[in-house]
Design a binder for these strands. Structure first.
Length: 576
RNA sequence: CGGGGUAUAGCUCAGUUUGGUAGAGCGCUAGCAUGGGGAGCUAGAGGCCAGCGGUUCAAGUCCGCUUACUCCGACCA
């Protein structure tokens, strides 16, 4: 490819809309352009990178026995009503109607469509297991599209669905995908962490996320260095902390605390550490039109993990109650709620609270707190659950070492679905004994554009992108320093022809631009290798090969350049 | 869904206070010059000031509505 022809409009200034590095560089390197919020056009350079990632994905899927197919993006509502996700998926589902006013949606994922296919075509255990996948555009009306390609409303995803006879079969398919995903991200040269994850709207039992570690990531994970425990904070659990004080239970006592309503204020008023306070929150568990209040108690220094809470309650949505509802339920303004004496409302106690002795809580009366509050004695503890948010420094529940936290981008997610969809949609098979059984399913997704963006978040410097060889749009760029110098230009053309002949993916910068412009564009776009042809080295009949990642320059004779490049490309591709 | 902000040249932004002929830098075109890290000089092209509706002799500027984009929040008592 000739740089003079390449449609890659690079930008010198940073467009105002871009916050994250990957977003900025994708725009500046002329790889993407936005058409609406969360919707982008991929320009040729981005398209090449995406194709490379997709090809790696394909190879690893096929290696595990996956078969590629392609399903429609336009889905009839009936299918989604059968799985009851037409309602459950909520506002994230793009809905539309045809001319007959029949309802459709744009597929945010394809469990319904694939299960419909399989229920029609698969009848016997002899046809299982089956691994089917596609690389297809998904549509999700995200609450807030962000960070360029990291959270878009239209994006490409590889989704594979596994169909097995039983749980053991599912375990095998799941492990295959686990291995395939690890191989894919390793081949993309990404540093990633596999974590236990919440299953969210997809449903199912076990689930792992593949998280690319990056400070700008939207997800927070915790991991243990003492063992291999790692989890998304949405799901993470930690060992309960032992209280380090021992004292006899005191007598419950009402204390006047005018205007003392926040945890900090209460702590300093009573000169007690926040961990001895009982934080009491009123939540509304929402299911469609109906909602009911739930009072939640946890230690003063802890925060609620709303995902855990929602899972425990089994409701569709959660919201903190407004001040008026709080007053209705507790009889006190916000800041003076407590579990003591609350009736007619479910009381959910965080497990850790059980260890608190002589705690402090609001008295459900303006400007009063109880002291010497003890769980069980002073309020009922019939419903106990782990609902707190784990933080760095908490102890690992399996080995006791301190947990660490990190941020990252979720690039892959695998689920054991079980029989949820096969039962809802009636996808069954006859086993060896002639019994009808639901197919056991799994689903496995990779966000392709997001993987590209994550690669940039992890591989860049102040000048631009540093593509890993395996997914670089082109492997080499040839830069003749002085375009008016025919000796340089001629040699550039000769090398360009040789490289094309040798199968190297190469761009020649044949533009009549100053050297600085060409160098800066090369660095911005991030070609892994740059061949510089200039007067300095040409005097000795040599050209320079510069490694984008290390900045290391190798001088080689012009005639040997192609061989050396092939060697470097081979080495870089095999590096991981 | 709630709250803030923004919308002027391809990009980044002034101009709005106090209404009176549309601006800068970068980019683009042509030329000169230069040729190892976005240097320089000259001459140009390029705007329905997001849209609609008001006020006014006169609106980018004042008022109202709409749309799009964007940030914050869906926060702990």
């Amino acid at each position: 490819m000739r740089m003079s022809q390449l449609f890659a409009p690079t930008l010198w200034e940073v467009p105002a809309e871009a916050e994250t590095i990957s977003h900025q560089y994708l725009l500046r390197a002329g790889m993407i352009r936005r058409i609406a919020a969360g919707i982008y056009t991929y320009l040729p350079l981005a398209q090449r990178v995406l194709e490379k990632i997709e090809e790696i994905v394909r190879e690893e899927m096929n290696k595990q026995g996956g078969q590629e197919l392609k399903m429609p993006t336009l889905h009839p509502a009936e299918l989604w009503q059968e799985s009851s996700r037409w309602d459950a998926y909520g506002k994230e589902l793009f809905r539309l109607q045809d001319r007959h006013e029949r309802d459709y949606c744009l597929g945010p994922t394809h469990e319904e469509v694939i299960t419909d296919l399989v229920r029609r075509e698969v009848n016997s255990y002899r046809q299982l297991p089956l691994l089917l996948y596609q690389i297809q555009t998904k549509f999700r009306d995200e609450i807030r599209p962000r960070f360029g390609l990291i959270r878009g409303r239209e994006f490409t995803m590889k989704d594979l669905y596994s169909f097995d006879r039983d749980q053991e079969g599912l375990d095998i398919s799941y492990q295959k995908m686990y291995d395939a995903y690890s191989a894919i991200f390793r081949r993309c040269a990404l540093k990633f962490q596999v974590v236990e994850a919440d299953t969210g709207a997809i449903g199912g039992t076990d689930s792992h996320e593949f998280i690319v570690v990056a400070d700008t990531g939207e997800d927070e994970i915790v991991y243990c260095e003492g063992c291999d425990y790692a989890a998304n904070v949405e799901r993470a659990v930690a060992a309960d902390e032992e209280e380090d004080y021992r004292e006899p239970e005191g007598e419950l006592e009402l204390v006047s605390t005018p205007g003392v309503s926040t945890i900090d204020a209460v702590a300093s008023f009573f000169k007690a550490p926040p961990r001895r306070l009982l934080k009491t929150l009123v939540y509304l568990a929402i299911d469609g039109e109906t909602y009911k209040p739930v009072v939640v108690v946890l230690r003063g220094d802890r925060e609620v993990n709303e995902i855990k809470l929602q899972n425990h309650l089994g409701c569709m949505h959660l919201a903190l109650a407004d001040a008026e509802t709080v007053r209705e339920i507790t009889g006190a303004p916000v800041g003076f709620a407590g579990p003591v004496g609350l009736v007619d409302v479910p009381l959910l106690i965080d497990r850790e609270v059980m260890a608190v002795v002589n705690g402090v809580c609001g008295a459900n009366k303006a400007d009063y707190h109880w002291i010497n509050v003890n769980p069980g004695r002073d309020f009922p503890t019939s419903e106990i659950a782990d609902i707190r948010r784990v933080v760095a420094g908490d102890k690992c529940h399996s080995c006791g070492s301190p947990l660490h936290s990190a941020r990252g981008i979720e690039v892959g997610h695998i689920f054991k679905l079980g029989t949820k969809y096969s039962e809802d949609l009636g996808a069954t098979f006859l086993d060896g004994e002639g019994r009808e059984r639901p197919i056991v399913m799994g689903c496995y997704g990779i966000g392709v554009p997001r993987t590209m963006a994550a690669a940039i978040e992890q591989n860049h410097d102040e000048k631009g992108i540093i593509w890993p060889m395996s997914i670089a749009p082109y492997q080499v760029v040839i830069v003749p320093v002085n375009s008016k110098n025919s000796e340089q230009m001629d040699l550039a053309e000769v090398l360009y022809a040789e490289m094309n002949e040798a199968g190297i993916e190469v761009v020649i910068d044949d533009r009549d631009e100053r050297a600085g412009v060409k160098f800066n564009d090369a660095d911005l776009i991030g070609f892994p290798l740059r061949v510089t042809i200039g007067s300095r080295s040409l005097k000795e009949g040599k050209v320079e090969i510069k490694d984008r990642a290390t900045g290391k320059v190798t001088l080689v004779k012009a005639g040997e350049a192609v061989g050396v490049l092939q060697e470097k490309i081979k080495k870089a591709s095999a590096a991981r």
